[in-house]
């Protein structure tokens, strides 16, 4: 920390809307002086306390543990109380647009209706399921390794940043989304929980569950706590196979197709992978397949090259496989 506190001026364009009185949202401009030790929540407070007390937002703990104050700054998800203003200036310059996590869910200014978020949280049985000894004289034993295997999923504060940043949620309202799936991981990888299979059956339907993640990593970027939801979703993919709960559908066959192809050639056979995943549906891809074939991107099955280390690769697959298909 420098000996004197440095200040800068920022120019804000702030989303405003009150669903009771406004037909359309609008933006209001504010000029705010900020200092190096301030976070974005201080900026929200300044707008309310110095300029316009009708400005509304959720906030409580002011240090990144209650998850109330998720907003978007220049369309980037952030937890306002954990984001240094000077870091934002470094990233975006001194002009910033402040918006709620989701504009279509707005109630008032930064306050959004989180009903769908909480409904999906509730859908995955977000609690440990086990018979509770109400007066125990010992604890469950849990190794440090098993504790670490929760992989920080237990620090999710349900701020919703990942959920509202997820493009799959945006286009598919049935998709459970990264937060509730990270919560699923939290309990499904806890050695003390007894409802793993039940939860897997909830989260592995096509259209709403883990297979609808498009692996874009937006959730990992948006998370202020380092939970990394996509990593957790990937572990759930594996767990559905390990536990024999994977249903045969285009997504699971796609996953199995990868392994089959590598096991057969040591290389990925992209043509067969599509056929494997989609079955008869592969026919609709024939025009692309033809173009790809002409560019040498795919080979006919009988022309598919084989890796010269295929035996080694097969051994590797065998020793590293944790699931039966």
């Amino acid at each position: 920390m420098a000996d004197a506190i440095e200040t800068k001026k920022i120019y804000l364009k702030v989303f405003r809307f009150n669903h009771e009185t406004d037909y359309l949202p609008y933006y209001k401009n504010y000029e705010v002086v900020v200092s190096q030790d301030e976070v974005m929540l201080d900026v929200l407070n300044k707008i309310k306390w110095e300029f316009d007390s009708t400005f509304s937002y959720r906030r409580s703990c002011r240090h990144g543990i209650c998850g109330s104050c998720g907003i978007k700054v220049n369309n980037r998800a952030t937890l306002a109380c954990k984001e240094r203003v000077f870091d934002m200036i470094e990233l975006f310059g001194n002009e910033m647009t402040i918006e709620p996590q989701s504009r279509k869910r707005v109630i008032k200014d930064m306050v959004i209706d989180k009903k769908d978020f909480w409904d999906k949280y509730n859908a995955v049985k977000p609690y440990m399921i086990t018979a509770v000894d109400e007066h125990p004289d010992s604890e469950n034993y849990m190794s440090p390794h098993d504790y670490e295997n929760l992989k920080e999923a237990d620090i999710c504060v349900q701020c919703g940043n990942c959920y509202y940043a997820c493009p799959s949620v945006e286009v598919n309202e049935d998709y459970l989304g990264p937060a509730s799936l990270a919560k699923t991981y939290r309990f499904n990888f806890d050695t003390r929980d007894e409802a793993k299979i039940d939860r897997l059956d909830t989260v592995n339907d096509l259209g709403s569950g883990i297979w609808d993640c498009v692996k874009c990593y937006e959730c990992a970027e948006a998370c202020p706590k380092g939970v990394n939801p996509i990593e957790k979703i990937t572990y759930l993919h594996t767990q559905t196979f390990q536990e024999g709960r994977a249903k045969s559908n285009v997504a699971t066959r796609h996953a199995v197709g990868f392994k089959t192809s590598i096991n057969m050639h040591g290389f990925l056979d992209e043509g067969m992978l599509v056929a494997y995943s989609e079955g008869i549906g592969v026919l609709k891809h024939l025009p692309e397949a033809f173009k790809m074939f002409r560019k040498g991107k795919i080979a006919m099955p009988w022309n598919m090259p084989k890796s010269k280390n295929l035996d080694e690769i097969k051994k590797l697959i065998k020793s590293s496989s944790s699931a039966k298909f």
Binding site: Y127, H135, D137, P144
Partner: peptide
């Protein structure tokens, strides 16, 4: 206190562990 801690642990609290698995 000991019963209270063990009770919340039994309900799922994620405590840091010793090598022997105790809290």
């Amino acid at each position: 206190a000991p019963e209270t801690i063990r009770w919340i642990e039994r309900m799922g609290a994620a405590f840091t562990r010793n090598n022997d698995g105790t809290i």
